[in-house]
């Protein structure tokens, strides 16, 4: 592992104009977020809904423009809009993303093969036979058989569709793959299969994962480092194990305690949460022992 980070984010900020009580103000979705990820490593961004974690994903892939701050991939800045088709494709092979909803993330008129071939052609100059071979290779990598590869999305289950989305992202041979709640819409047994698949893919390709999730079990299984976000701010950062096992922040402890388990009392957590948010975090959540 080298020392240069593959992905480095410095002072990232994103605001949206909103009108509140007739006054125009800026809603701060992401505020002064900085982190870096080493090549082949993995980072989780954890937080509740609305904490700004998905906004970060959109900023990283260029679906939204940053208000302030820089995003560096392998030292290359990508905060400005890409100029020209080549720059666009280059960005595509830097970072790819797998979205949450497997039902709408594929073009319903396109067969799996056609979707993969389109992505392969975009990022290579292969001839027809080579494209077909690469498509087969990608389909096999994510565990789709020939019949599924020839099918349209409507004939596939949620898990199978998410495999297609992963294969399409990998077609660009990205350095970083963002998984934006990518397994959240799948049921638990399928979720486990996809997580295993992702672990295998990382071993085979050395791709760097950026996992965005509210699901701490998934985070624990797939990532080495984690940052915890709340209301657009990073409240805690460190290795996944230490963040989840020995959280320093009351908010992280609450997130962890919010995972259902035997003896779990959601009312108590929200009561304690209310005290914690009243600027008195030390008396708030009791350290829970496993």
């Amino acid at each position: 592992m080298t020392d240069t980070p593959i992905l480095e984010v410095v002072g990232l900020r994103k605001t949206y104009p909103v009108t509140q009580d007739g006054q125009r103000t800026d809603f701060v979705a992401v505020d002064d977020v900085s982190f870096s990820v080493q090549q082949g490593s993995s980072l989780a961004i954890v937080g509740e809904s609305g904490s700004g974690k998905s906004t970060i994903a959109k900023l990283l892939v260029g679906l939204e423009r940053v208000t302030a701050g820089t995003i560096l991939i392998d030292g290359q800045d990508r905060t400005a809009k890409p100029r020209g088709a080549r720059a666009r494709r280059q960005r595509g092979s830097d970072i790819q993303i797998v979205f949450q909803d497997p039902y709408t993330s594929l073009d319903r008129r396109q067969t799996v093969e056609a979707a993969l071939a389109e992505a392969v052609r975009l990022h290579s100059n292969l001839n027809r036979d080579q494209v077909a071979r690469r498509v087969t290779e990608l389909a096999e990598m994510v565990g789709l058989d020939q019949r599924q590869a020839e099918a349209r999305p409507i004939a596939l289950s949620g898990g199978q569709r998410q495999r297609v989305a992963i294969a399409r992202a990998l077609a660009a041979e990205p350095r970083v793959l963002i998984l934006d709640e990518s397994v959240a819409a799948l049921d638990v047994s399928i979720q486990a299969q996809i997580l295993n698949l992702l672990a295998d893919i990382r071993e085979a390709t050395g791709v760097t994962y950026l996992l965005i999730s509210h699901d701490l079990a998934v985070v624990r299984q797939l990532t080495r480092d984690a940052i915890v976000m709340r209301r657009g701010l990073v409240v805690e950062a460190g290795s996944t194990v230490s963040v989840l096992d020995h959280p320093q922040e009351a908010y992280t402890r609450r997130l962890r305690d919010s995972v259902p388990r035997p003896g779990w009392d959601p009312h108590q957590i929200s009561r304690e949460g209310a005290i914690a948010t009243a600027d008195n975090p030390n008396t708030a959540t009791k350290e829970s022992h496993r």
Partner: peptide, 8 residues
């Protein structure tokens, strides 16, 4: 969005 991110 996925296609845009691909660079299409």
């Amino acid at each position: 969005s996925a296609l845009t991110v691909q660079g299409l």
